[in-house]
């Protein structure tokens, strides 16, 4: 198995996903299959090939530093599950990150 059950548990925690024991077993198998398949790529000879940072062979795309109108606050907050007149509301965030 290219990925252990512990690793899957850790990744699910980081992704804030809660799985049952059964699901964790299933995920471990499925992710292992995917990773094994991706290992095929390792067979390609990449000697002397520069690593790519991006799928497109372009660089230096910029915009000018100009201010344009922002979203109306009502529109911005429209999809929020909880809100007051000005802000999004979330369960209490205590302490600094």
């Amino acid at each position: 198995m290219p990925i252990s059950r512990e690793q899957v548990e850790k990744v699910s925690l980081l992704g804030r996903l809660l799985f049952s024991d059964n699901e964790l077993d299933k995920m471990t198998c499925q992710l292992s299959d995917i990773l094994e398949y991706m290992d095929l790529l390792a067979e390609v000879d990449t000697e002397g090939v520069e690593p790519m940072a991006h799928a497109l062979d372009i660089s230096d795309v910029f915009r000018d530093d100009e201010v344009r109108p922002s979203l109306d606050r009502e529109a911005a907050l429209a999809g929020a599950p909880h809100r007051d007149d000005e802000c999004y509301l979330v369960p209490a965030v205590l302490g600094e990150l």
Partner: peptide, 17 residues
């Protein structure tokens, strides 16, 4: 920015993006 008024005993934090 997260804002939380502990003194006011409010349950939620307010988020300003």
């Amino acid at each position: 920015k997260s804002m939380h008024d502990e003194a006011a005993g409010v349950a939620d934090s307010r988020i300003d993006l």
